[in-house]
């Protein structure tokens, strides 16, 4: 295992964390969308993420491209193993995009309700599939000697992956609720406060359940903590971040709550990486797992892409910063809104 291979494992982790934090809140807003009442409220929830969701999704595209480039074996195995779930994920991403885009284009009530349901459902399915994928990655999938998937469709929907899937939906809902609280005001905001509390407790319960099931279904997930006991610090910080969410909500400081939920998601992605490393696809059979070393591209490519990332990262930060700055503050409906 070379330094460059580890670097790319870390970069993928950063991209995944960036994606989970950023698209996480707009997916979460989607999950909660149907709780908004009436056309005005629903337009407000959609437009709270209106200018941002598209840019957030680019993190996924870049994550996919980086995985393809840095670890093509893992990219090929994971996507072909999870064929139908990935196809459903892609449909949901399409469904979400067009729901946002088309919903407010006609005044008809049936039209708008249809797209509201489609938006909310597709958002939930996207997060669910990501969670199921993460659960499978941690627990392991059956591989053959050529690192091809050797299981069937139903093998992907075990208890553990489904639990992680539900946990992911709850996390996104909580994260989205806090974001929405920041973006709204008045009556809607008062009700979003209720969503925040409820989704937080669902999140907490599923967090506990997932943590409890992990030693049962994926005992190897804790191996790395023996090598690097310092990683427990991240666990401790994670607990503090989670605890700070209700505290900040209670004290009426939603910005802190949002920062805490961002930190929580970042810590969860870190723990996900800890559970995997040095594997990328854990094998549940006798065949070897795909590891950071065995799945990687050549050193030349990894180095080349490290340069590309070094040039690109500051640019990406700048664009993201500009957009979030221009669209800061409470959501307002204007002529250009969805």
């Amino acid at each position: 295992m070379s330094g460059l291979q580890i670097l790319w494992f870390v970069i993928l982790g950063v991209l995944l964390a960036g994606y989970a934090i950023l698209d996480g809140f707009d997916l979460g807003v989607g999950v909660l969308h149907l709780f908004a009442r009436g056309d005005r409220e629903r337009r407000l929830t959609i437009n709270s993420i209106g200018p941002l969701w598209d840019g957030n999704e680019v993190w996924l595209v870049t994550f996919g491209g980086a995985l393809f480039a840095a670890f093509p074996e893992a990219y090929a195995t994971i996507l072909s193993a999870m064929y139908l779930p990935v196809i459903v994920l892609l449909f949901s991403l399409i469904g979400r995009a067009i729901s946002i885009e088309f919903r407010s284009k006609r005044p008809s009530r049936a039209w708008r309700t249809y797209w509201d349901v489609s938006f909310s459902l597709s958002s939930a399915v996207v997060v669910l599939v990501f969670g199921v994928a993460a659960g499978n990655a941690i627990a392991g999938i059956p591989l053959d000697a050529d690192a091809e998937y050797a299981g069937g469709l139903l093998d992907l929907f075990g208890v553990y992956p489904l639990t992680v899937g539900a946990f992911a939906v709850a996390t996104a809902a909580m994260h989205g609720a806090i974001f929405l609280y920041l973006k709204t005001e008045g009556e809607l905001q008062a009700r979003v406060r209720g969503w925040m509390w409820r989704s937080f407790f669902v999140f907490l319960a599923l967090y506990a359940l997932t943590t409890g099931l992990t030693p049962v279904y994926a005992p190897h997930a804790f191996d790395n903590f023996e090598h690097w006991p310092a990683a427990w610090i991240v666990v401790a910080l994670n607990v503090l971040a989670v605890a700070n969410i209700p505290r900040a909500i209670h004290h009426g400081r939603p910005t802190y709550a949002f920062v805490s939920s961002c930190c929580t998601i970042a810590a969860l992605v870190f723990l996900f990486g800890m559970a995997l490393f040095p594997n990328l696809v854990v094998s549940s059979t006798d065949a070897p797992s795909l590891t950071v070393a065995s799945a990687a591209s050549s050193e030349t490519t990894l180095k080349l892409m490290a340069y590309i990332a070094a040039i690109g990262a500051p640019l990406v930060m700048t664009y993201t910063g500009i957009v979030y700055w221009v669209f800061r503050g409470k959501v307002r409906l204007t002529k250009e809104s969805y």
Binding site: V58, G65, A66, F68, A69, A70, Y75
Partner: peptide, 12 residues
């Protein structure tokens, strides 16, 4: 992947 991936990642 080794060749194609870097172009795709650059696109992103």
């Amino acid at each position: 992947g080794d060749v194609f991936g870097s172009a795709l990642a650059s696109e992103g």
